[in-house]
Design a protein around this nucleic acid. Structure first.
Lengths: 211, 211
DNA sequence: CGAATACTTGATAGTCCTCAACTCAAGTGG
DNA sequence: CCACTTGAGTTGAGGACTATCAAGTATTCG
């Protein structure tokens, strides 16, 4: 899936005001309750947006890869925090300036609207995933999602995130994620040359699990 | 919480093009995969947006009450279906016309953007709710949400939806919802004069459950 | 009053979490 | 080069929680 915003920056002559930022793996990009003055587009690497609960649990809302926009907020305060999953580069946009531009530039307005709708759709899909019971369904859905988004060969998935990340994304524990992957491997649906590399051996069976 | 769009229709001279529709309880407003030519704002009553899985299970994404906007889609196709929980009245807006207006009217554009962001935020909150384990937490969160949105007295909740609706919203079964309510009542946090009416007796204890 | 629907409660089983041990791979320093 | 360390991942045993199946109560409506 190519980026929906081929190059919004240069299109608008806004380029000189943008900033490319680099973050190391596991470093914070912004925190919950921060002031939301900017939003971002991923250039390379992977970013996770998440929230922490009082009892130390973490819920990952989404993983963002090259082309994805994240950090667009409704109010002035961040509702989620963002962290680099891998070393990554992101472009930062000034929110207020973007919104001002949107009042005069229809394309910009449509872009902002599209981004907002996209996060709504993603969050809805995620809700469905979490509500739908079954560890196998969740993991299968996750794998198909990653296979599709990583783009490369549909059958090879190189996971950038840890098992803990996956677990926090799916509302499971790392042990359950690990066991489920082992089970999928025993069932011949996937193979695991290494822990982080997963080969899809039977796509239709995986899809059937999700259904 | 008052409607964020006091009267977008009359503000734009768009009023004569809007249609007020009435639906009876449990009747379909639109179905998944329908063409998304319109979106809606609830005038009275309650609407649920949901999706069905192959195995007959249902996941409710959100409940919408007076002032809420629903049915705004990214693509041309509905990803969720919408049904009347109670008898209700809704205003229907032509999506394409609204988007055209947005290109010339900054207020309209901001409204559309705000609606999109709002559904994103809601869906995110819902994800967190579903990912966060624990039936008690889920039910407590649901009750506080309903208490806040119904508006009236914060301590009296008149549920418009069935236990099945609640269960499908929280990713639980009706039995677990029922048992959890009974437990909350035994713990003195709530009282149930009737099945559909719930009195909050100890708000802080409920909030502590959610934390 | 009888039928239908919504809701509650109980007993049992299944799934996933918790706690714990173990394997594996990658560094690090002697 | 190899023991040691460290972090990530896997596997196992037991327990907690919720789903399932089943029965019983309550409420509504004809």
């Amino acid at each position: 899936m190519p980026s929906p915003a081929p190059d919004a920056a240069s299109r608008t002559g806004f380029a000189q005001k943008e900033t490319v930022l680099h973050f190391l793996a596991d470093h914070e990009i912004y925190a919950e309750h921060d002031e939301a003055k900017t939003f971002y587009r991923v250039v390379s690497g992977m970013v996770r947006t998440c929230r922490f609960t009082h009892d130390g649990r973490r819920q990952i809302e989404a993983f963002h890869v090259a082309g994805d926009v994240f950090g667009l907020e409704h109010g002035t305060e961040r509702l989620l925090s963002a962290e680099a999953v891998t070393d990554c580069a992101v472009i930062s946009f000034h929110r207020q300036r973007a919104e001002m531009l949107a009042t005069t530039d229809g394309d910009w307005a449509r872009q902002l609207f599209a981004y907002a709708m996209q996060s709504a759709v993603r969050a809805q899909e995620h809700s469905l995933l979490l509500g739908r019971s079954g560890a196998a369904q969740k993991v299968a859905t996750f794998l198909l999602e990653m296979a599709q988004r990583s783009g490369q060969r549909e059958t090879t998935i190189d996971l950038a995130m840890t098992r803990q990340d996956i677990a926090d994304y799916l509302g499971l524990t790392i042990e359950t994620v690990s066991r489920t992957l082992s089970q999928l491997e025993r069932d011949g649906m996937i193979a695991r040359p290494t822990a982080r590399r997963i080969l899809v051996r039977n796509t239709s069976a995986l899809r059937q699990l999700v259904a």
